[in-house]
Design a binder for these strands. Structure first.
Lengths: 290, 290
DNA sequence: CCGCATTCGAACACAACCGAACAACTTTCG
DNA sequence: CGAAAGTTGTTCGGTTGTGTTCGAATGCGG
């Protein structure tokens, strides 16, 4: 398992240092290579600093230092870099989440999958007492658990990376429910390979959830559309609706539409506020509890 | 500095401190990061105070200290309110948790119950890869889930008050396990009424867990000892060990001892260090993979 | 093979940051 | 009132991150 926290492992890196290393990884993931002088100029730091970063990152196996810069370490770091970037795509994800929330209004049983996009979706899900939400994600379950709807957490072994319950127990629990709609994320979604996921465990759970749902809504930001991960979950036709953003490649969307997938592009026009239970306008007065 | 909280006639010391730490957690939850100097200026306190807060919060696993500030810990976004509950907890509970942690060393399967004392216990539980921890509490599961041990969350309907999985699913899942020791909290614990709990759901789960455990350790601060709640879980003899603090009434403790309960009083002398998820002894040897 | 420009990394310098220790102050309790 | 405990600010020696210098190493074109 590629420890996503490994970047932070140096004794006590500052925020800027961590950010800079993230940037380096991103660049390397994008362009396969990076040059010390260029990047130093770009960030306004000395070359020595970049060199030190590279040495550190190589020590942890994220890349390989070369004469004049560094190159991608083939096997590793893609996931890491994408993870790092996933945190920054939040604008699009929020839009997708808001749009998707409008698609599940009035329903009574929904399945929520795993991933940051789904977490966002949960934030914007309109809570009603007669709504039951089932999810393997502890984060999502915690998020929903405090609100006015019935939340069911799947049990099972908790995965370290994303705090998700996986394994036979989760699958067995899933078998007790039937869903009007399953809202799931995706490691990749393409016409050729359908819905794909990075982890096998997650794929298994999603497969069962899809089988038990009458409708499937896939949430995937543009960078996921047309891409494929390793574990195949279901063909693209299994998804009734795909909610994505404007950055998704048009050709791929056309192909998906050809397969009968209803494609929804989330735009910024409907700037609905979040559905958080507590607004944070209470900045100055810290909670006067108990 | 004029104490802005003096108007409230603060009932116990450290009221401002607790509030300040809440603010820190909020900020970190919002922005993933915080800087000492900036925040100190913002609140009008010295940097040292902020540093002390951060150190404390890291010790309890809320965040991760960095050079110049702190960043969010992986147990991100459990609702801050829930995550921060433990902040208001007395040092008695922490002492109990620390003491109890020494009682479960070397075991391989433990059940962790519900409640803030148990959450504290989880923070100080020494993680080992071969240790399996089972719990119905989403908070505890999230806390443990990022650390180096196998965590199993019970599934089920999530209770709003304390983010606990309850109901038939939780009970059924429990039936798949056997525990060397069950560590549980208590709404009340007395010689007369035994182990009692406020909620029926919780009582049911604890009953099953006790039946499936070879040893039962009850954690209860002094105020709980001698008291009884509405729902009876088990007679006092079911508990092999009670860990409490010095404020527990001596007469009651004597009565419990008479029933064969091994009473342990947690004191401050064993100033055991914290059990943060990442060991920082790896200062000099960076290549030690987690 | 030899120069030559570029890059690398050890060493040093400096600023920012950290934490232990101490002092000043407040609150609690006898 | 006085002792004890808790909280915050300050000081100071040590640590960490970054920039700079400079000799050594490397790639490249004869």
């Amino acid at each position: 398992m590629s420890d996503p926290d490994a970047i932070h492992r140096s004794p006590r890196p500052g925020r800027v240092a961590v950010d800079r290393r993230h940037l380096i990884l991103e660049r390397v993931a994008d362009e396969q290579t990076i040059q010390v002088g260029e990047f130093a100029r770009e960030l306004g730091v000395s070359e020595m600093t970049i060199r030190r970063d590279i040495r550190l990152l190589e020590r942890d196996g994220f890349l390989r230092q070369t004469y004049g810069g560094a190159t991608a370490h083939l096997t590793r770091n893609l996931d890491v870099a994408f993870n790092a970037r996933a945190l920054q795509h939040s604008r699009e994800k929020r839009l997708i989440a808001i749009r998707a929330a409008t698609l599940v209004e009035g329903l009574s049983t929904v399945f929520l999958g795993v991933g940051t996009t789904i977490e966002q979706f949960a934030r914007y899900l309109h809570a009603r007492p007669e709504l039951t939400a089932v999810t393997p994600s502890l984060v999502t379950a915690s998020l929903l658990g405090t609100r006015a709807l019935r939340t069911v957490a799947l049990g099972g072994t908790v995965r370290r990376d994303d705090l998700t319950a996986v394994g036979p127990i989760a699958v067995a629990t899933l078998a007790r429910y039937r869903f009007e709609v399953a809202v799931i994320g995706a490691g990749g979604f393409s016409a050729r390979w359908g819905l794909t996921e990075i982890s096998d465990d997650e794929a298994e759970i999603q497969r069962v959830a899809i089988a038990r749902a009458e409708r499937v809504i896939v949430l995937a930001d543009g960078s996921k559309v047309g891409r494929a991960a390793t574990s195949v979950v279901a063909p693209a036709e299994a998804a009734h609706t795909l909610v994505t953003d404007a950055s998704a490649p048009a050709a791929e969307l056309a192909a998906l539409r050809g397969l009968g997938v209803n494609v929804v592009i989330a735009t910024a026009d409907v700037a609905t506020g979040p559905t958080t239970h507590e607004d944070k306008t209470s900045r100055g007065t810290p909670s006067t509890r108990s």
